Simulated scan of single mutants.
Amino acid sequence: MTASLDAAVAAFAPRLPLAVAYSGGADSTALLVACATRWPGQVVAIHVNHGLQAAAAGFESHCRSACGALGVPLHAERIDARHAPGESPEDAARRGRYEAIHRAALREGVACVALAQHADDQVETVLLALSRGAGIAGLAGMRPAWEQDGVDYCRPLLEVSAADIRVWLKARGVEWIEDPSNESEAYTRNRIRSRVLPALREAFPTALNTFARSARHAAQAQSVLEEVAAEDLQRVGTPPDIAALRSLGRARQANVLRHWLRSAHEAQASTAQLEELQRQVAACATRGHDIRLRVGEGFVQRDGARLVFTPSV
């Protein structure tokens, strides 16, 4: 059974002052109202105007009016969220939105930012990860909390369903706006929401809870993998010693290589790239064997006894 919104907010214990990422939609509206009620005078709202729709100005105007009625300061950030060639529009908008929220959080000196993703969003995220062949990290779904540059980020509604959020708002007579882009099946997440989730609920009525539980199990497993990877990276060194890498089992080797690339160079290796890198490491039994493989925005290369990462110029 999913949690109630009131119970989720009651269990939420953020550092103050608190910012709520506020789009004007049902989810962020409920979170903003609940937080402003619980911590009066300690909450601000951050609204990101993507400028991608004609309705964007209307969204911002609605948010200003709603915040005025609540007595909550609104900080509106305007961004250019157009996607680069080869980048998905959804990913570009998401990246731009989080960057804008973070800039505003640092500028306004808030201690914590609350994000309104809920249980349905978590299931969609896990299904999207499955469709892409993701590993444990992807199947863990969205993180409930993390820290960046001294600012805490929290998702207190991850165990609350979208339906319960709307019931909560209607019971209080609170209005929200619907983003028309949420109805467009040009976006993969929207197709999951409109087609897959209803069928899943019909076949498995408890899917919302069981998928969320699976995501928590995956998150725990991912945490263990990261601890092991950090320990192994100390053993193989930074940059990694090739002989030390070759002494590890294949799965553990993949784990530490992925961790090294991500933690030291913010590079994300695809499955194919990682498998090819491991193949080359396995073949690297002589001094003359060269390694040069593109990963992310750079290259993994052999430098004597070690692997190094060189960013693209």
Rank of each mutant, 00 (worst) to 15 (best):
P17K: 03
E159D: 12
A13K: 14
H50A: 07
L128V: 03
E183M: 14
A199N: 06
S131M: 09
G298H: 08
Q117D: 12
S28L: 11
R258C: 10
A137F: 04
E178C: 01
Q220C: 00
A26Y: 13
R94I: 05
M1T: 13
G141I: 04
E226V: 03
A218E: 02
A84S: 14
R172M: 06
L225E: 15
P156Y: 02
L261T: 02
A57S: 11
R95K: 12
R107P: 00
V123T: 06
A145Y: 14
C67M: 01
I242H: 00
A26F: 04
M142F: 00
V236F: 07
T206W: 12
V281L: 14
R97H: 07
L248K: 09
A55D: 01
G304T: 02
L169H: 03
V20I: 15
C284R: 07
H47D: 05
W39K: 02
A11D: 12
R15L: 06
A92Y: 07
E297T: 05
A251D: 15
A3N: 12
D152S: 12
R78T: 13
S28Y: 08
D164Q: 08
M142H: 10
I46Q: 02
I46D: 03
C35R: 03
F204P: 03
T271R: 15
G298P: 04
A11W: 08
Q268M: 01
P73D: 05
T29Q: 04
A282F: 03
R262P: 01
E147I: 01
A129Y: 04
A251K: 10
D241F: 01
V236Q: 02
E202I: 03
L32I: 00
G296R: 09
A69D: 14
V196G: 05
P180N: 06
L18R: 03
A92V: 07
L307V: 02
G138N: 07
H50M: 11
Q278A: 02
L158T: 04
H118M: 10
E77V: 12
N255H: 06
A243C: 03
H259P: 09
L261N: 01
P40M: 12
Q280I: 04
V256K: 09
L274C: 13
L208R: 12
A119W: 11
R38M: 08
G133D: 12
A243F: 03
V300R: 06
E87A: 12
V160D: 00
A19S: 05
A55C: 01
V44W: 06
A45P: 13
E159H: 14
R64F: 05
G296A: 12
L197V: 13
